[in-house]
Design a binder for these strands. Structure first.
Lengths: 340, 340
DNA sequence: GACCACCACGAAAACGTTTTCGTGTTGACA
DNA sequence: TGTCAACACGAAAACGTTTTCGTGGTGGTC
């Protein structure tokens, strides 16, 4: 087992002082050409690499970004991470990832641990439990310590920090408008109960689209799924006695259950009924029929979040810079679950 | 912006020495009950937390595990990460994740950066490019430095380290045996070209299962997909003029393309033909029909890898401990793409 | 009262860097 | 030959910990 090379060892070996070695390696003009060459050659030969930890301690920055997400086994979040990673690496940062498992306590603990020097700033999508509890002391604390924080996706209005979100309402509107443009009249909505913020916002988009097109709202065409685990049955029951020519689902899963239910009723998608969904997964591409979707551009979200954070980190007087909220545009991907 | 509290500040505030503070907080018997209480109360009141970086430098360990995977936008890898994270957190480690994007250079760079003190050890699934290049100097280097390395999934035989793998051959055998037990006679195989190791191993399992059941090998029932991007067409062409009652696909995607192709031929899955696949994704659960699969237990792989690594990290004379290779058992999940 | 043990604490080194400030040597110049 | 600048380098502090060793004071024992 080879010992790692340090400045001290090089100094001893070449019989100069540590300072000289350090300066030589950083090409300081203070050191004569001769010594500099000698030291650099030696360092290169034995593959010297400065110790990150010592640098962190000295510079009081870790060049590390802490990312805390509700769960990692989720395609959408991995695309976001991917975006974060790309930008971060480009700028010489690395990324520590922690999952909160949607638990408030784990979110708090993770932040506290990482805040003790491991990380220069945070990118965060809050846990469900945190949203419900409305306890944000861990967030305000890191902000007070001067650590920049960027929230994405599930953000909290009251917290003053940079944010990256998508326009859920507009995305939903786009989806419904698309259906209207295809000639659909009776458009159903499968959403979640309102305290899930995306459900609420997307529902609102649905309503706005209807009203803008002068379509009368029919409450009976709206389902707010209560229990995710029971959603398949709920949806099947909901669709059994309705007559509609299109459905907008707020996520991939609901859309698929809807298609299943239609099939069982002997209806064909997209011939008899169109289905469109907000989505974040692979499923929509591969499913038969493939799904027409509103796409959330996770990778770009991650990239923007990382850019915001690094901007704050590298700006010395970021204190007085105002906070930004970046809105990522949703896109509509037309596939085979909607009629042409 | 509040300054972070340090031992030095506490010492100054309470007019004692830094050593006293440190000892008091660690409940050293050297310090009198009185002073100890006073210091602890103060620390608690102002929420003192030791600086991780300073500790890392002092202890020469970071309590951090570096994970390097080919890509993160991949359900299988996220399950592995999830397993790693759980075990690591339990034992007081955190996890730093880097992706190689299947690039050799990025893999090397990531390892080098993390090896400079940021990380105590590595969990790694090598990049495709690394497999092809057969250049493993970065791996041997970290090992030589005494950093433990655990490889999973895509491992490299020649490298001497702990490993966690699944038994691809056995898994494939299970799958084919299952089909045989259901009465299938003409079982097709959709695999990848042989230099992808999993393709090779799973093909081998297929062959073994056939021979064990005294089924004659029919080469024309084997497709080795050449170009992933063209796989849908290749598979459709392959299946167009064959007659088989079952197909074993080495991954989810191939299975779905197969089902699609059968459908287009007017064949029903599972009534006319059964499909079974190795899988790592969500897709198999949601697809219609849902897929019978061989499941790779990613989470357990991650957990085992983390356990192996931490064992090495916490064992002082791990030097002479032999390396282990843990084989994770595959499971068979019966769903609706195979006949009953 | 001399000696010793023990208590409670502090000084300093160490981890591996960077950087500021000194300092001894050289050479030029008057 | 004395003065001074420039040069090339070293000592030391600093980042925030932990830990070893030392030490001044107290009290007890003979």
């Amino acid at each position: 087992m080879k010992k790692r090379l340090t400045l001290k060892l090089i100094a001893k070996e070449l019989d100069v002082s540590i300072s000289t070695v350090s300066k030589a390696l950083r090409d300081s003009a203070e050191i004569s050409e001769d010594t500099r060459q000698k030291i650099k050659a030696f360092a290169k030969l034995y593959n010297y690499k400065p110790n990150n930890i010592a640098l962190s301690l000295k510079n009081r920055k870790s060049k590390t970004i802490g990312v805390i997400i509700p769960e990692i086994v989720h395609h959408y979040f991995t695309t976001v991470i991917s975006g974060i990673e790309q930008v971060a690496n480009e700028k010489g940062y690395h990324v520590i990832i922690c999952t909160s498992n949607n638990s408030f306590d784990k979110e708090v603990i993770n932040m506290e641990i990482l805040a003790n020097g491991s990380t220069d700033g945070f990118i965060l999508s809050v846990a469900k439990e945190t949203q419900q509890k409305r306890d944000y002391h861990h967030l305000t604390e890191v902000i007070e310590q001067g650590m920049p924080l960027v929230m994405f996706d599930r953000v909290i209005e009251e917290i003053n920090c940079d944010k990256v979100i998508i326009d859920d309402t507009l995305g939903a509107k786009k989806a419904v408008q698309f259906l209207v443009d295809k000639g659909c009249k009776n458009i159903g909505l499968i959403s979640t109960i309102d305290y899930v913020s995306v459900g609420k916002l997307r529902t609102q988009g649905y309503l706005e689209a209807l009203s803008e097109n002068n379509i009368e709202l029919n409450e009976s065409l709206i389902l707010k799924v209560d229990d995710f685990d029971e959603s398949e049955e709920e949806i099947s029951r909901f669709l059994s006695d309705k007559s509609m020519d299109a459905v907008f689902a707020v996520n991939e899963h609901f859309a698929i259950y809807a298609i299943k239910a239609f099939k069982e009723q002997g209806l064909d998608v997209p011939k008899d009924v169109s289905v469109i969904a907000f989505t974040d997964g692979e499923l929509s591409k591969r499913f038969i029929p493939s799904l027409t979707t509103i796409n959330q551009h996770g990778e770009e979200m991650g990239a923007q979040a990382a850019r915001l954070l690094i901007k704050k980190l590298e700006n010395d007087d970021s204190e007085d810079e105002p906070f930004e909220t970046i809105i990522i545009e949703t896109g509509l991907v037309e596939r085979n679950s909607t009629k042409r």
